[in-house]
Structures are given as structure tokens and as C-alpha cells.
């Protein structure tokens, strides 16, 4: 099994927190970064649109903000600052769904951050799975080869013929 090259996870995880997908890109993983970005950003924006662009703010919704939205990094910071003086004019039909969407988007960024951390410390998941499969195959072949190497035990060996027949 090849040793996993370990990298310091601090900067990639920080980047993953600030911009969804940037942590993966910083460790050279293009497609995971693209998928993370393409999942989180539209979900966040759709959630804001459903809520009338007023649902991200530490004064209006402190529990949501400090519990979930804070994990959105610059996305949350920009939205909160840009909608600082937004007013709730009317109750929208899907307002609570929008709140849920932005919360889920920011919590998904925690999953992406954890994945960046894991890739820095333990390598890629597919490489780990391949290494496990190789190790299992090697162990299996070693088990299969073992009986041929071991000398037959006295209990299983055939009885010697008596001299003189």
C-alpha cells in the first residue's frame, strides 16, 4: 500500500469555509470542488429568493444565523451585509422553505469542509477503497497459498507402512 501524502488541512479547510468548493480546488481536486460549488450556491440563492432576500441576518434571525448560516463563509457575510436593512414586507408562501434551504446549503458546506480535511489527512476516498481492495486481495491470496507452505502435521499424515509388509 502506498503511503498517503499528508498535507496541512488548515488553509484548505479555511478556503472551503470561505468559498464553497475552493478548498477542494486548493488541494487539486477539480470535480469535487465544482460539484460542491454547483450544489451550494444555487441552493443558497434559491433559499434567499424564496424568503424575499431577508432571511440571512444576525439581527433578524439570530438562531439561524449563528447555528447554520455562519458556515456559509463569505456567501453568508456578503448576503448579511447586502441585506442589512431589508424589511419584511409580506409573508411569502414559501418563506420557511427558503429559510430551510439557506440553512441546508450552509450546513452542506460543513460536509465539504470535513471532506477536505479528510482528503488532506487520509487521501482520496477512491484511493482508500482501492488500497483496501488490494490489501484484501493480497490477504486472500496469502491465505490460499498458506497450506502448501506448511508441512503436514503428524495427525494428518498417512501411517507409515510396516516393514516387511
Amino acid at each position: 500500500m502506498e503511503p498517503v501524502e499528508r498535507k496541512s488541512p488548515v488553509l484548505p479547510v479555511l478556503l472551503a469555509w470561505l468559498v464553497p468548493g475552493a478548498g477542494h480546488l486548493s488541494i487539486g481536486r477539480l470535480w469535487p470542488g465544482v460539484f460542491t460549488f454547483a450544489a451550494i450556491i444555487p441552493l443558497f440563492v434559491l433559499g434567499m429568493a424564496l424568503s424575499g432576500f431577508e432571511n440571512v441576518g444576525w439581527e433578524r434571525h439570530p438562531y439561524w444565523f449563528w447555528g447554520a448560516h455562519v458556515w456559509g463563509g463569505l456567501l453568508t457575510a456578503g448576503s448579511a451585509v447586502l441585506t442589512l436593512h431589508a424589511e419584511v414586507r409580506e409573508k411569502l408562501p414559501d418563506q420557511s422553505v427558503g429559510q430551510l434551504f439557506t440553512g441546508v446549503a450552509c450546513l452542506l458546506n460543513v460536509v465539504a469542509m470535513a471532506d477536505v480535511w479528510s482528503r488532506c489527512n487520509r487521501g482520496d476516498p477512491e484511493a482508500r477503497a482501492a488500497a483496501r481492495a488490494t490489501a484484501a486481495a493480497a490477504a486472500e491470496s496469502a491465505d490460499a497459498a498458506r497450506p502448501a507452505d506448511v508441512a503436514p502435521s503428524p495427525t494428518t499424515s498417512p501411517a507409515p507402512e510396516a516393514p516387511g509388509g
Binding site: H24, F35, T36, A38, I40, L43, V111, A127
Partner: peptide, 23 residues
């Protein structure tokens, strides 16, 4: 509501799928 439900499921699937594979 059904469309919104599918959208959020797709987003969760994309992030968890991206966190379990590289290619």
C-alpha cells in the same frame, strides 16, 4: 413543493457524492 423537495435532495446528493469520490 415537490420540485423544491427534489432540488434540495439533489443538492444534498451532489455534495455527499462529491465527498465520496474524486473522478
Amino acid at each position: 413543493r415537490i420540485a423544491l423537495f427534489l432540488v434540495v435532495c439533489l443538492a444534498v446528493g451532489m455534495v455527499t457524492g462529491a465527498s465520496r469520490a474524486t473522478t
